[in-house]
Design a protein around this nucleic acid. Structure first.
Length: 479
RNA sequence: CGGGGCGUGGCGCAGCCCGGUAGCGCGCUUGCAUGGGGUGCAAGAGGCCCCCGGUUCGAAUCCGGGCGCCCCGACCA
């Protein structure tokens, strides 16, 4: 802990790893590509999880839980799906000391086993829409892993729904993406861009995939959540049918959508600085930390009593507060320690403050003395509430400015190459086909992150092929 | 899968070339002092040196084989 973290400017990747381990979000595990999520990291995930779960339930979804192990044959029922996931499957071939009749796949995602269940659950149009979510772990044997951003096993939620019509399925797909964007922007303070994925970035087996794309501190893109309109592909593969009002058999239209612990990595990478994590107040496991400062035994008691009273007052106001009563550590050490851990607001309480009936507030988003103010004890709770709100919006504003400053318009391919080479995101009209897109990727390292919704009507000549009806696309190198 | 690195107290490493007592920093325990920006002193605890085999009187060290993890690229939430 005494050591500094690697500066972002020196090596962003190493900075990220340093932060994840030093801030106690995660620890390495004995298993390749899998991490132990430690309490602080898990609490951050819980904040994201709770924010999502609340919104899922408010929109009529119910949680359920499906098996971890899926019969191998299920994956094969949807051609594109099996092709997409085969290379990264972990497969159980033996159990109970015997070779299994049919191998079981550890779910990489649950469209298949849930599709199979849906085909039994759905009989009538009255059973629709069926709106299910599950919180679970999944395993994808990735070649290259990074804590939170890409691990062999990760936690996520996967929503699966079935509808009577194409329109309803599309509306559901978009609604869930909006929920993701809402959580990203208003809880995580990450100004994501919502849009549609290109063909080659589409989910294996989907008709259309929508995404929220986030810009990290090194200007690389991170797909932070996706929502898929599966059309009738899975309904067909798993025979998900219903009898309509006219007594006719109809195929359902299904969707799926997921957001994972990758979002924890997004929070780290979008907001962190060389001092450590910076957590948005709404998601911070501890929004406020109180550091008591004492000299000698007689002061210790009064200061600690005062600090304890302060904590209780903030607790009662619904503010997640931690009192750092560790003995034997100097205040300076604690200041640095909590800055590393990204706690938004620190309260310093010493004999001087007790004597003057005040408390020093230090904001994590404003470094050094600049971020410190002394407030009267009587107005403290209000000052804390306002401070947390100010930090939350300041973080979103800063991230938004950073994002917008690093997105540049590309009129032609030369522009695009230059922008990508300089490390930004390029925005331009696109009407190319899959091969054109692969070419851009091969030559620049950038992929189409999405066709943004908010510029969907803007059309023009393709930056690569010069065809006249290109949509606005965002290009970037991604994690 | 290609390239690189590394396996030695909890963590980070040195020792290995040149074989012979297992060492340093941090952390941990106890005590005293200290305390408004990364504490000081003192005394302690803690190690199948990744595994298997070989060479040798003797292996962390030399030789052979294996295993594992991390980092960098291509595939992906």
């Amino acid at each position: 802990m005494a050591a500094q973290v690697t500066p972002q400017s020196e090596d962003f990747s190493r900075w990220y790893n340093d932060i994840v381990y030093r801030a106690d979000l995660a620890a390495q595990s004995p298993v390749r590509g899998s991490v132990i999520i430690k309490p602080y990291g898990y609490e951050l995930w819980e904040g994201i999880r709770d924010a999502l779960d609340l919104r899922f339930k408010a929109t009529g979804h119910r949680n359920a839980y499906f098996p971890l192990l899926i019969p191998e044959s299920y994956l094969r029922r949807e051609a594109e799906h099996v092709e997409g996931f085969s290379p990264e499957l972990a497969v159980v071939t033996h159990a109970g000391g015997k070779k299994l009749e049919e191998a079981l796949v550890i779910r990489p995602t649950s469209e298949t086993i849930i599709g199979e269940a849906f085909s039994e659950w759905i009989q009538s149009w009255r059973d629709l829409p069926l709106l299910i979510n599950q919180w679970s772990n999944v395993v994808r044997w990735e070649l290259r892993t990074r804590p939170f951003l890409r691990t062999s096993e990760f936690l996520w939620q996967e929503g699966h729904t079935a509808h009577a019509t194409d329109d309803e399925a599309e509306a559901e797909t978009l609604q869930m993406l909006e929920i993701y964007a809402d959580v990203a922007i208003n809880e995580a303070a990450i100004p994501v861009i919502s849009g549609r994925k290109s063909n080659i970035e589409r989910f294996a087996g989907a008709l259309r995939t929508y995404t929220i794309e986030a810009m990290m501190g090194d200007k690389r893109a991170l797909q932070a959540g996706t929502s898929h309109n599966l059309g009738q592909n899975f309904a067909h593969a798993f025979d998900i049918r219903y009898l309509d009002e006219n007594n006719q058999q109809q195929l359902c239209w299904t969707t799926s959508w997921g957001l994972s612990t990758r979002m924890v990595g997004a929070v780290v990478m979008a907001h962190g600085d060389d001092t450590g994590l910076r957590l948005p107040p709404r998601l911070a496991p501890w929004q406020v930390v109180i550091v008591p400062i004492t000299r000698g035994d007689e002061e210790r008691e009064t200061v600690h009593a005062s600090a304890q009273a302060l904590k209780e007052e903030l607790d009662d106001a619904g503010i997640r507060t931690h009192l750092d009563a560790r003995e034997g550590l100097r205040p300076g050490f604690k200041f640095n320690d909590w800055e590393l851990r990204g706690v938004p607001l620190r309260l310093e309480l010493g004999p001087r403050d007790v004597a003057s009936n005040s408390v020093v507030l230090a904001r994590r988003d404003i470094p050094g003395r600049e971020g410190k103010t002394s407030v009267a004890r009587s107005g403290l709770t209000q000052a804390v509430v306002e401070g947390l709100q100010a930090i939350q919006s300041n973080m979103l504003n800063a991230a938004t400015t950073f994002r917008d400053d690093n997105i540049h318009d590309a009129r032609d391919y030369a522009d695009l190459r230059e922008i990508i080479e300089a490390g930004g995101w390029a925005r331009g009209y696109w009407a190319g086909d899959d091969d054109d897109e692969r070419r851009v990727k091969d030559e620049t390292g950038a992929t189409i992150r999405c066709f943004p919704f908010d510029q969907a009507d803007d059309r023009g000549p393709c930056l690569l092929t010069d065809a006249g009806d290109g949509e606005i696309a965002l290009f970037a190198r991604a994690y």
